[in-house]
Design a protein around this nucleic acid. Structure first.
Length: 469
RNA sequence: GGUCCCAUCGUCUAGCGGCCUAGGAUACUGGCCUCUCACGCCAGAGACACGGGUUCAAAUCCCGUUGGGACCA
């Protein structure tokens, strides 16, 4: 009975609002979310805003918006560390009272001097324990240090890496509370994770070296440590830690660039995680199949080509109606005149196998929305030539006879005229294409015509004929 | 400098001692389809970092080297 309740999985995502939700953070969030959902557990969001100067409310907004865009909903929080200072204080007091932590008066200058001396002797620089047994009372400017184990070893039973053994002699009496009274990162993380009942800590493997310290602290505090899973990092194309200079920093920037959240999630999941040869996963499928054991150990390079491929895939999969809605903001950004939804749906149908992003799709759609299309000079010169004029004129006349345009009929007429004048299908088609779209590349000719509608097609065909020198 | 992590095609990865003359995906090249471009389909090229062991047998296990990364200072 109690076992079932106790074994309920609780994971968390603890971003610090000193920057946008970046790719690495998003993947960490995704893994935590997937693990929680897979086990019908809880996913907690915690904002680590103890750095009062660098933390900004707009970054909190960005992070929350990013998670929502990806579809990663949380069950608890967001908690803010800045509102939990009292809890941290209580834990410091407890450790102090039990002799598991102590005040240290050593000044930075003294420590720096000792560090240099140790280095000079060829020893490793670490706190020498000057104040460890002095049992000093509180004093302004004093720090609080953790009385760490000096003997034995601490082992991290990592779910991905297996046991990682640390020699306790390598550890330090690290600082829990700074001289200004603020608690340190490793300390608040442990207090938060313990008091929030986190059962599984899934985070970047840049935290591996912090883990033995944290485990000792859990034990000193009388809490049971959670299970740890350290996932490999995401690197830039130059194989260094992914950062702004590699391109987009924020997940929301990918939204701006016309990526679909489904593509992003699928991509992020497959970066470091796999399921046989399968490449395409819906969110639901990821929940079902996600398993920490299938996370790899080595760092992965962020490769936008694959993201683009996935995005193209999901664009093709998205129903036209929905895709049209998604495209509208991008059309507006291009300052195209507004058009009815049914029209955008038709536009989208012709473009969905051609665009890799919504931005690209909006760019390709210009001739559907602009009255005055831009003619590519090279295209015009090459295809709007005198020899196609009679055929174009006849095509124009034929269309004027039609009550409305439909693809089959248009194609029949096109073939007939093209043969009558002995034109190559390609040359005749391109002449029409340039007239209608201003360029040599577009969706199929007849679909373009039916989408544009008789009136506009006739107008553009006339304009095209007029441009023939 | 110390500690720790990692190492299969350019990239993401499958592989958990024999099924591997190493599979898939992407990107690339060629072809088919074709009114252009895409989509789709077919084909091609492309990797076990190196060196030692262990074993009848190693991409898979062990050790070392090299390389990359992270954390601490």
């Amino acid at each position: 009975m109690k076992g079932r309740e106790m074994s309920k999985v609780v994971t968390r995502f603890p971003p610090s609002p000193t920057g946008h939700l970046h790719i690495g953070g998003a993947r960490t969030a995704l893994f935590n979310w997937l693990f929680a959902r897979h086990h019908h557990g809880k996913f907690v969001l915690r904002i680590e805003d103890t750095d009062r100067v660098r933390s900004k409310p707009e970054y909190v907004d960005d992070i929350l918006a990013g998670l929502k865009w990806l579809g990663l909903n949380w069950d608890e929080g967001p908690y803010f560390q800045s509102q939990r200072m009292e809890i941290y204080k209580q834990h410091i007091e407890k450790l102090l009272a039990e002799g598991k932590a102590y005040y240290c008066y050593c000044t930075p200058e003294e420590l720096e001097r000792k560090r240099k001396e140790a280095m000079a002797r060829g020893e490793k620089p670490r706190y020498d324990g000057t104040c460890r047994f002095k049992n000093l009372p509180p004093k302004p400017g004093a720090v609080v240090r953790f009385k760490s184990n000096l003997v034995g070893e601490t082992v991290v039973n990592d779910l991905i890496h297996g046991p990682i053994v640390f020699n306790n002699a390598e550890l330090d009496d690290w600082i829990l509370q700074r001289s200004d009274g603020t608690p340190t990162y490793n300390f608040v993380v442990v207090v938060d994770d313990a008091t929030m009942g986190i059962t599984h800590v899934i985070r970047g493997d840049d935290h591996i070296n912090n883990t033995p310290k944290q485990i000792q602290l859990y034990e000193a505090l009388g809490y049971e440590p959670p299970a740890f899973a350290h996932v490999p990092m995401i690197l830039g194309p130059d194989k260094t830690k992914l950062s702004k200079r590699h391109g987009a920093a924020s997940v929301l920037e990918y939204k701006e660039m016309g990526f679909l959240p489904e593509a992003m999630v699928n991509f992020l999941a497959r970066l470091g995680w796999s399921y046989g040869d399968q490449e395409i996963f819906s969110l639901q499928e990821l929940i079902e199949k996600f398993d920490i054991k299938r996370i790899g150990k080595s760092a992965a390079v962020f490769n936008q080509e694959k993201l683009l491929w996935l995005n193209a895939h999901y664009i093709k999969e998205t129903p036209d109606e929905k895709l049209a809605d998604l495209l509208v903001p991008f059309l507006e950004k291009k300052k195209y005149p507004p058009a009815p939804k049914e029209y955008v749906v038709k536009v989208v149908q012709t473009l969905k196998t051609r665009a890799k992003t919504l931005v690209e799709m909006a760019e390709m759609a210009d001739f559907y929305f602009l009255e005055d299309i831009a003619y590519d000079p090279k295209a015009e010169k090459k295809f709007l030539v005198p020899e196609v004029r009679p055929a174009l004129e006849e095509m124009l006349k034929a269309m004027q006879q039609m009550p409305s345009l439909n693809e089959e009929q248009l194609e029949q007429v096109f073939r007939a005229i093209q043969q009558k004048y002995g034109l190559k299908p390609r040359n005749f088609a391109q002449a029409i294409r340039v007239s209608l779209t201003g360029r040599t590349v577009s969706p199929g000719l007849f679909e373009v015509m039916t989408v544009l509608g008789k009136e506009r097609v006739i107008k553009r065909l006339k304009a095209g004929i007029d441009r023939i020198k």
